[in-house]
Design a protein around this nucleic acid. Structure first.
Lengths: 205, 205
DNA sequence: AAAAATTAATTAAACGTTTGTTTAATTCAA
DNA sequence: TTGAATTAAACAAACGTTTAATTAATTTTT
């Protein structure tokens, strides 16, 4: 693996575990087994390393969602199901990266970086909104709040994903259990979300 | 106001805005208009100041929830409505404090402090679970996932509360709009949650 | 009630570390 | 031989914390 990418991966791990500010470049360099100067050599600064991380991983979801929205074969509720599957899969398979993103959203440092993140999410939200509004127009869906429906889907996943200890408490498992790799838990989360969204959205159920 | 409490309030503001690690004691002392040594004089260390913040504000919700659970006059769905109102009110009225708590949950520093936070939430979760399970037993509620239902309620509120810029993007308002003090937005959030939980939980609707 | 003694609160300065970053020299690869 | 990659060392700045001295408040003694 290229050394630059290797540093990014170790940085995601450390930043998401300990926080951006709490992780020193020396610690990062030690864990990545490179010289301290290499980080600034490749990225210029610690802040720019953070930006590189966000930019490299961003806007993967957008393509999937655009494809989904323009799909003519699926009904609106089927699209919502696929959307839930995609988000659950995406968020649970990269918990560290998403923790890092949310860390950055939580604090008000590095404003332009935060704006970038919001912009990425913004596009996704509009697509989901269009699907829900299409369902409402066809009188398949109730007249719900599209934006907050989106917030409920993402928020539910985030709630179990952003803190492992909180998730373990919620589902009453011990520390050895890893909810993010457990397929049964993933299915459980998907099922809950689909059922909830179905009963909330669908007029006939 | 007692100086010790004043420091705590300024600390909540700064920590939640910039992050715990990114806030220096010198900056905190300057904003609180006290000498740098006063923080360690009152709290011993920066870490213990954080603990003091968590402990001082913790477990307010517990009393309200216990009272609600043991209430004999309300039906289960009415209890869920009150619960939603309480959570929306509580979380939106102290956004800074809750951001700080979630910041701590997000990173894996200060393990014992995180355990304390989880313990507080744990009690609340059990109470909510008991209400939902009671509703299921009485055949008022569908056989839902109680834990993840709780995650959806809290997660939805957190989704709009943890990042103001994300919230503004979601509801399409400009920067001057403050969603956390706006009563209309609060009502909107309450309505969405109640409608969603009603259609998810209730058998007859 | 006044004076003295004791404790608490507050201060500026200094402490030793650690931080992100840079430098200048060296090794490696093309 | 030229440019990129890598290194150890050094840089200044900022960090959390402590010290020792001073002021303010409280308690005790006269």
């Amino acid at each position: 693996m290229p050394k630059k990418e290797h540093i990014i991966n170790v940085a995601i791990e450390l930043f998401s575990e300990k926080g951006f500010e709490a992780t020193s470049i020396r610690e990062l360099a030690a864990k990545a087994d490179v010289n301290v100067a290499m980080v600034n050599y490749y990225f210029g600064s610690k802040d720019k390393l953070f930006e590189a991380i966000v930019e490299r991983k961003a806007s993967y979801m957008k393509g999937k969602l655009e494809e989904l929205a323009s799909n003519k074969e699926l009904t609106e509720i089927q699209k919502m199901d696929v959307l839930i599957e995609n988000y659950v899969d995406r968020l649970l398979s990269q918990p560290n990266y998403h923790r890092l993103i949310h860390q950055e959203l939580l604090v008000k440092q590095r404003v332009t970086l935060q704006d970038n993140i919001v912009k990425i999410f913004s596009g996704n939200t509009l697509i989901v909104k269009s699907i829900i509004e299409s369902g409402i127009k066809k009188k398949l869906f109730k007249k719900v709040d599209p934006e907050l429906t989106m917030a409920s889907i993402i928020g539910t996943i985030n709630q179990v994903m952003l803190s492992k200890s909180m998730c373990l408490m919620l589902i009453q498992k011990d520390e050895n259990f890893d909810p993010y790799t457990d397929v049964a838990f993933r299915k459980r989360l998907e099922t809950h979300l689909k059922q909830m969204i179905h009963s909330y959205l669908l007029i006939n159920n």
